[in-house]
Amino acid sequence: MTDGLMQRIAMGDSRAVEQVIDQYGALVFTIARRFTRNPADAEDAVQEIFTDVWRSAHRFDPAAGTEKVFVTTIARRRLIDRLRRLPNRIQTESSDGLDEHGFHTSDRAAEVGVDAARAAEVLATLRPEQRRVMELGLLHGLSHGDIVAVTGMPLGTVKTFMRRGLIEVRRRLGVTDGGSVD
């Protein structure tokens, strides 16, 4: 049972801290390893992310999404901020070392959560090269230049694939322009 963890954190219930870490620690660490150069960087990033989670818990709105999405959003924001502050962002010219895990089918993704299942439904309808662009950008944190180098696609195509893919996922999630979910 994880419902209400963020509300408990916001109310100062320190017993909820361990539950949050047990529930989301592995997820955050896994995402952080994808976006960092080494385990030490990832551990620093995870500490930053959870500091942000404690401070932001009072902003969690169950009507706007699940706690898992909330924590993942904070993790992504922090990791992107770190990437942008790096003097030399990770540079990749080949797909060597970039594990191609791909995405769940929607029924398998449903075990992760309803948002993941809906995203998986959309991803399944995309062309493989568009899915690969989204995987390289969103899961591996590659720059657009690196994605161009790895895939051989023109920059305009990479950006269009990403924008259109996110628009489709957003539509499937039912997010309105006010940020709420239909």
């Binding site: 948002d115 969103l138 996922v169």
Partner: peptide, 28 residues
């Protein structure tokens, strides 16, 4: 696109890594 990017991240098949125990203690 924040929620959409998070949902795509969660739809990944990447296996979850175990949180190092020393890091867990620091986080708690």
């Amino acid at each position: 696109f924040a929620q959409s990017a998070a949902a795509v991240t969660l739809a990944s098949r990447m296996p979850l890594l175990e949180l190092p125990s020393a890091l867990r203690s620091q986080l708690v």
